[in-house]
């Protein structure tokens, strides 16, 4: 009886684990939907900003701005790494950290000082354990990053960049492309060099032309656009990270549930076999006992 009972016990515990992973899968599916909606909302804002800059470019304004220019000084850089607060999401955290550390080494070779800012408990504990000096860490940006909160961070770093305290700002996060494609990456936020190329690309394949009046002047509008482009890009990184985390967790938990299912069916088979052979044994004993009495 011992073997069958042990198998049954194991099967029960795996059933319990399956319940947990299944629930986590459902929870992250729901959270993913919400995070996704937010990402899409931010997208419509980004598109409008891009269109605005395109119209500015058409109005004959050169996209020149202190935030867009490459800096010659290489004193201090800031690197943000956006990881998750919780694990159980497959290779999500390790992917982001790998991208982050690669960028960190790159920056360290170019800049005198690199300030490391981490969001998420997982990233923080990994980096401190491995001896990377983390200067600041945040854990409040969970699966629902609030724009107001991100804005505080963005404005702080923007201010430090403007006064020349910081010469470069990078962010490492998991980029969300589609449900089946997310990848860890690192981007340079300041100087905002990529903005112009994206827009020029966009400007070439659009034909409609509206003759806008700019209030007070195209120049002044640009002064407002550029910091906003940075803020939205920064916020988008947080949103992408949140969506990717939920997808990663969904996938990981789906795989775990499938594995548990497989294991349960295997254990059920061996439990039934063990039980059957036990019964057979007992019957043999009874029969042989009876025949011995004859």
């Amino acid at each position: 009886m011992a073997k069958a009972r042990a198998l049954d016990k194991r099967r029960k515990s795996i059933k319990n684990i399956r319940k947990i992973t299944r629930t986590m899968e459902l929870v992250s599916t729901a959270q993913f939907r919400r995070a996704m909606e937010r990402a899409v909302a931010a997208d419509s804002y980004t598109k409008r900003i891009v269109r605005l800059v395109r119209d500015l470019a058409k109005a004959g304004l050169k996209t020149e701005h202190p935030l867009l220019a490459e800096r010659s000084a290489s004193k201090r850089a800031v690197l943000f790494i956006l990881s998750a607060n919780r694990g159980l999401c497959g290779g999500y955290n390790s992917g982001v950290l790998r991208a982050g550390i690669a960028r960190l080494k790159e920056l360290q070779s170019e800049y005198d000082e690199v300030e490391l800012v981490v969001s998420g408990k997982r990233g923080f504990s990994y980096l401190t354990y491995h001896g990377y000096g983390v200067d600041r860490s945040y854990t409040q940006f969970d699966d629902k990053p609030v724009y107001e909160d991100v804005l505080v961070l963005a404005d702080d770093v923007l201010k430090r960049y403007r006064v020349g305290e910081v010469d470069r700002v990078d962010v490492a996060f998991s980029k969300f492309v589609s449900l089946s494609k997310q990848y860890p990456t690192s981007e340079t936020l300041l100087p905002l060099s990529s903005m112009t190329s994206e827009i020029e690309e966009d400007a070439t394949n659009s034909s409609e032309l509206v003759d806008y009046e700019f209030l007070p002047s195209p120049r002044s509008i640009l002064d407002e656009v550029v910091p906003n482009a940075f803020r939205i890009k920064f916020f988008k990184a947080f949103l992408d990270a949140a969506v990717s985390e939920q997808i990663a967790r969904m996938m990981a938990m789906k795989a775990a549930t499938d594995n548990a299912d497989q294991m349960i069916s295997m254990l059920t088979t061996s439990y039934n076999r063990a039980r059957q052979s036990q019964i057979t044994n007992e019957i043999i004993e009874v029969i042989s006992g009876a025949s011995a009495l004859q």
Binding site: Y212, E213, P216, S220
Partner: peptide, 17 residues
């Protein structure tokens, strides 16, 4: 940013800060 601006029906195209 330099004062209030009113927009009614059929306003001409404008971009403002």
């Amino acid at each position: 940013f330099d004062g209030e601006y009113g927009v009614g029906k059929d306003h001409s195209p404008v971009v403002g800060r």
